[in-house]
Write a protein that binds this DNA or RNA. Structure first.
Lengths: 206, 206
DNA sequence: TGGGCACTCCCCTAAAAAAGGGATATTTTA
DNA sequence: TAAAATATCCCTTTTTTAGGGGAGTGCCCA
């Protein structure tokens, strides 16, 4: 039985490329494509594919959020994330939000078919390059647990405010802000504000 | 006479998409593709196409630099930049480096052919969406122009190094590093390191 | 009910950065 | 070639951080 496939990607050339790669596959039933999240959701109200190939970068809502929404409304649909090399950090979130696999946009026809076949029977598929990327990420970026107050202070630090300014804003002493700042540096294992902000941005906490 | 076309893009799906879009065009002579800058340059030593469709994001050298190199060595080759929506800021640089046009990766077959036809007779082609995009960019996210040295210093600052450490690393005085730091703060319109790093990360310069 | 945690505040010193200023080579480029 | 941009260096002063330390209060929960 053919797998009903739908694609969400804002790049027409990518859609055309995938279409071209899969046009000779007999067990693929090409249902069409959407170029943004909202038209994808509109389509799903009419028909449901078995598998959605979903880009992470979409013009309206991010693929990460769209993935979550789709899985909540249609748990039976399997989602394969489509990603670029530079987006490894998002892939984990995509998987957490219910994606069953991901392939990188320069995957070959063979790799793409492997992914579709694996996912269509309920397995997970992680493309080799991306799996490598995630492993890298795993042992160098364990997100520390920070408290509510620390997070507040962190945001204000990243906005360029000094301890004194933050103290005024939060109605606390600048000594307290300093303590929070020290704890943040310790928790993130960073030496100074610059590396703290960089790390926090990389972890997408801001 | 057929236009000899070559493609440089690191995403196989995009190449396949373009190939598929153009396969029925009689006046296109598909010469092949490269997935990075160095294999593109290697190819050009053997054969020269009339037009290169060149992605801006390449794994080794940026398309912007590759464009410059190619135009210096082979001025007769016309280059059309391939871009994503988010990369409007680079397009201008691409044009400055000798590109004759650009199309966005979700261009239709018709748009792509218009671009190729225009460029092959020496005209410029600016895709509508991208032209709009450039106008948008102008007033909402002006990425400041920073020098090579400033960029080096910026990276090291974001890595948490102090002026002294950077000075040792770059074999310059810490006073010089301080000057670069001041210029960076001024150019990005930020008050301190924290907001500088945040802004730079947001602009995807790191 | 007592330990753990979050939040608050304070002390100290040394280091670093921010914010002014100015100056002089060198390299690019128009 | 001359102007412009870039890279280099130095000065002062003030503000801010970093890195130690300790310490009290309130809250949750085992």
């Amino acid at each position: 039985m053919a797998v009903k496939l739908f694609i969400v990607d804002d790049h027409y050339m990518v859609i055309e490329g995938i279409h071209s790669l899969l046009q000779n596959e007999k067990n693929i039933d090409w249902m069409g494509h959407a170029s943004n999240a909202s038209s994808c959701l509109a389509f799903l109200q009419q028909q449901q594919p078995d598998i959605i190939l979903m880009d992470i970068n979409l013009p309206d809502i991010s693929g990460i959020d769209l993935c979550k929404t789709v899985k909540e409304k249609y748990p039976a649909i399997y989602i394969i994330a489509l990603s670029t090399f530079n987006q490894q950090s998002f892939i984990e979130k995509m998987m957490l939000n219910g994606a069953s696999g991901y392939v990188i946009k320069n995957a070959t026809q063979q790799e793409l078919m492997e992914a579709i076949n694996a996912v269509s029977v309920g397995k997970q598929f992680l493309s080799f390059d991306a799996a490598l990327a995630i492993r890298h990420q795993d042992h160098e970026s364990d997100v520390p647990v920070i408290t509510r107050r620390e997070k507040e202070v962190l945001y204000l630090i990243a906005d360029g405010m000094t301890n004194n300014e933050i103290a005024v804003k939060l109605f606390i002493s600048s000594a307290t802000v300093d303590t929070h700042r020290k704890n943040l540096l310790a928790k993130f294992g960073t030496r100074n504000t610059a590396s703290l902000v960089k790390k926090v941005m990389q972890l997408n906490l801001i």
